[in-house]
Design a protein around this nucleic acid. Sequence first.
RNA 1: GCCCCUGUAGCCCAAUCGGCAGAGGCAGCCGACUUAAAAUCGGCACAGUGUGGGUUCGAGUCCCACCGGGGGCACCA
Length: 1020
Amino acid sequence: MTTQRTDTTSSGPAGSAPSGVADTQPAAETAAATETAAAATPAGQPATETPPYRYTAELANQIERYWRDYWRSNGTFHAPNPVGDLAPSDGAPVPSDKCYVLDMFPYPSGAGLHVGHPLGYIGTDVWARYLRMTGHNVLHTLGFDSFGLPAEQYAIRTGTHPAVTTAQNIKRYRDQLELLGLGHDERRSVATTDPEFVRWTQWIFTQLFEAWFDPDADPAPGGGQRGKGRARPIADLVGEFESGSRQLADGRAWTDLSRTEQAEIIDGHRLAYIAEAPVNWAPGLGTVLSNEEVTADGRSEIGNFPVFRRNMRQWMMRITAYGDRLLDDLDRLDWPESVKSMQRNWIGRSTGATVRFGQAGSPGAAGGTDATGAEIEVYTTRPDTLFGATYLVLAPEHPLVQQLTADAWPDGVDPRWTGGADTPRQAVADYRLAASRKSDLDRQENKDKTGVFTGAYFVNPATGKQIPVFIADYVLMGYGTGAIMAVPAEDTRDIEFAQAFGLPVIPTVQRPDGFPDDAAYTGSGPMINSANDEIDLNGKPAEQAKAEMIEWLQRKGFGAPRTQYKLRDWLFSRQRYWGEPFPIVYDADGIAHALPDDQLPLTLPELDDYSPAKLDPNDPNTEPVPPLGKATEWTTATLDLGDGEQTYTRELNVMPQWAGSCWYELRYLDPTNSKQFVAPENERYWMGKNADVAGDPGGVDLYVGGVEHAVLHLLYARFWHKALFDLGHVSSEEPFRRLFNQGYIQAYAYTDERGVYVPAEEVIEDPANVFTYQGKPVEREYGKMGKSLNNVVTPDDMCARYGADVFRLYEMNMGPLADSRPWQTRDVVGSQRYLQRLWRLIVDENTGETRDVDAAATEGPDAEETRALLHRTIDGVRSDYQQMSYNTAVAKLIVLTNHVTKGGGVISREVAEPLVLMTAPLAPHIAEELWKRLGHNASLAHGPFPQADPALLVQESVEYPIQVKGKVRSRISVPADADPAAIEAAALADPKIVEALAAQGVSTPKKVVVVPGRMVSIVP
RNA sequence: GCCCCUGUAGCCCAAUCGGCAGAGGCAGCCGACUUAAAAUCGGCACAGUGUGGGUUCGAGUCCCACCGGGGGCACCA
């Protein structure tokens, strides 16, 4: 501890002058500062003095500085761990009631924070403080996701090492966040660029490299998954091959294989593996990107450069092995439906069947009846409609195209099918070339169906009829088998193609009356036209028809059921500098080896030039040149990996930015552990499953962040966590049990007549809603807060102008945390007025003396009314905090404060203390200060929190509105415990109601509805 | 094109199981304090819930259609 200014040395009892404020800053100085500010008003008039102890920004800042120092030096927010460095030094057990509150950690950009960034951080802080005050052991901290492109691009421009820029930016963020008084355990704050953090990121990578997914294995112990399959150590697989208990798919004997061949087989199973795979190559960035980093129009999310699909050798993560669990376990998570549905959509599981079509003796083919036995395998989700399949379509890049394309057109070929070419070979070649030149953007913009006939005919196994085979770019090589059976009657895309090419349409599902003939019917209905000698689907509903068709296909050897995913394996390497190096070296045979744990972390080499090779952004045929290749000494290493000292070459790619964020929540739990990435006891305590909740997957108790991470970060992190679970490193099956998306703070921006953005803070709105800047009209727009829009407001500004507590209170009072809302600096004053009123209730603005709260009357009708309101407030505020409904909690606190203020007298201790305590989660500094002035020597951070007396929540009498024909005609007051019959009698006896009924000409009403505690409704 | 969310005073937002449309804040107006202003304090007014139907004794809330705003997906067979 660095300061002596603790409770015990600074403050006297309530009512005496000294306090944190008086200690730090004499009253005269405060007054003088205020006076100076006031004297500088434009009017130039001598200023009347603001009361010297008013809760102004200056005073707030003094209080805030004092309490921040206090919290830091007392370790107020240190949360004890069960074991390790952060365990209680006296060996005391940790409380069983814990809560792990987590924010999505920021990338520390050079621009610093604006007022929108801390919204979620304040929200979680209020929640964490409330839980801490109600007796929970709360873990809350904030680290940095500090690998990232901006620091690297800055390094390329200026030569400044990214680590230097990153450290500066982190410092800047920490300084800004410090002002807000967030109750973080600063011992647990980590950055993903810290060598100790990188060490464990690399360690987890080696775990994934040394593991494979066994689809037939039973779930790991304690798992709640439905089916089989889990990750196992790769050594198990090697052992099974060696012992012969597992055979190779191609029938070769394991022992006959060379070392390189064996390595190839093994590598083909690893969770982290190298593959020649189609990647998204962005030459403008000099790197490849994951699917998730490419926009729908085929450009890079960062930098907006063209992205090309091509094959390259890259590191991949076998996330597809977890597709089922990632999808199924969404049901076990307390997440917003929108995020779940985005993940479901991204994983894109569909069920159906593969169907094989054999080649027919093509009438136009030179060889007559085909002798090759060629087969086309398609994937379909509608095997029930097989009878309606009237042609086949292959993706232009499909490997069979070359082989099955005929030499000549059949006689009388439809001219629309030929693409104007003399032969099928010519037509196919032309079409494939054109398709390869089309960018994704072209394909998206032009949805007209194009294609050419290959000259080949295959046989529909259900009908025995020959159907033509086309290639068309509406079929993608990357999904299913790259080939489809076209059922134009029941598929929108197929009918568009069929109409363009004059192909037959055979309906297999009964359409409702009036459904147009020329459109595809994708709805439900009984099957028609679907029978042969062996199978009859007619009249049956789709589900049954699907099942019967699949059964028939299987029996006949024509097909098999199949589950298909949109999700692809995760491209994990980047040709960049500022990322985690792979802990991988290659031996002389090119076989990859993981570095042993004691060699970690593998740190980045120093470079003179951080740029990847300069490449033409528009040239897809360029080759990536990783920056690490320039570090000539670093690229090789002499190691003993068990076969004696040998020279190895290092992997030159680095990991993508997502790596660190895949597991950081686990490192917060045990940030100083040098033996393990997290001790199992600590993981189990903070993130373990709750045995009292059926199906609970474990994980962080509350995770708050923006919805923009719905797919990328949240899917990758779930995948790593599940792999770590399978391998026995964590007890929880999911990283984030509960997710909450906070809204965004947006802002108005204004342009002058030239279209230039003017400073938004200086724009004036007149009563007629006209906006002017320096007297000239400006146009208003609404959107993001940003430098280029000249509308940035920073938390630093707000803290200087109002104080952190006012700023926090305003952000929480603007609306529900989940809502986006516009920033309005002029509204902030409302929150300031509330805290000023609260301050004035307890402190004399003129003398700085604490009021004598023990002298206030606690008897009499006024006191009783206040007491009843107090307890209703406590009750409401508790449940509001519980539900993170902070805006309504603030409203209730203001009501109570206004009620007490209007009473005019001195507030009683009975009301003052709960009011201060209830305000504390929102405005912690002022609350601590007032709590101390009320005579308490310990911080209120760990409670108490007021409890409502249930007896005081019960009203003695209730006012019931009485409706006649749905309109309120009168009101009666009845004892709260009156039974419905008594209420009804009282209502019917009410003179106004008697009158109203008489006016309707009714003596006894038809019906009387009594809702206890609510109202009475009479139907005449 | 498909899917999801959302429309309540001039503005930001409350309203539990369908039960008196208003908790709170900003802005506005009036008043107190002031020589005056600012700040502060006290008070007042302001909408019938995007539109049109329906269910109900009763609809902001439930159902249907449409309109506006926001987001996601987009030839995924």
